[in-house]
């Protein structure tokens, strides 16, 4: 065994020396290199995980927002529809009311016009009859005055009157 070790160059002192240098390297690396490395890798891993989580959250939020928007759009469309229906209904009502009012007003106007026409007709008839009476009287007066100056007419009249009296008696 010792012969084998000798010919392979295995020397316990060197073996231990190499083990010690490995140990020293391990200690130095564990002290200086690995802690910042592990920390940095962990931080990066966390950051990537956070990014993914954030992305998922944003996507969910976006979807939610989209749905909300769609819902509000739908609601707005319905509202508009409803408002239009309401407006149309109220417009119809207003129109009917206006028409009724107008018709009423027109009827009243017509009625008042009729009464006025009647009154005017009555007064006009009265006026015309009065006027005609006056004209007739004046014509009679004039005729009477004209005939009264004529002795022949007087004579005839008198004779006519006498004959009439004769007949009557």
């Amino acid at each position: 065994m010792a012969q084998l070790f000798q010919s392979l160059g295995i020397n316990p002192i060197l073996l231990v020396a190499q083990a010690i240098s490995f140990g020293v390297v391990y200690l130095v690396l564990s002290r200086f290199l690995f802690p910042p490395l592990q920390k940095s890798l962990q931080e990066r891993r966390d950051a990537v995980a956070k990014t993914f989580a954030d992305q998922a959250a944003i996507e969910t939020r976006l979807k939610q927002f989209d749905e909300e928007q769609r819902a509000s759009q739908k609601k707005a469309a319905e509202d508009v529809q409803k408002m239009m229906i309401d407006a149309r209904a109220s417009a119809d009502a207003t129109k009917a009311e206006l028409v009724a009012k107008a018709r009423e007003a027109a009827d009243a106007e017509v009625a008042s016009a009729k009464t006025r026409i009647q009154q005017e007709t009555v007064s006009a008839e009265a006026e015309v009859s009065a006027h005609a009476k006056a004209v007739a009287q004046s014509i009679v007066k004039e005729l009477l005055a004209e005939k009264a100056g004529d002795p022949a007419w007087q004579q005839s009249q008198i004779s006519a009157g006498i004959s009439a009296l004769k007949q009557a008696s």
Binding site: I10, N11, L15, A19
Partner: peptide
Amino acid sequence: GGNADLNTTLALAII
């Protein structure tokens, strides 16, 4: 080369 020596490689193996 450090590993062209059995002392090194056996030391590592034992560790």
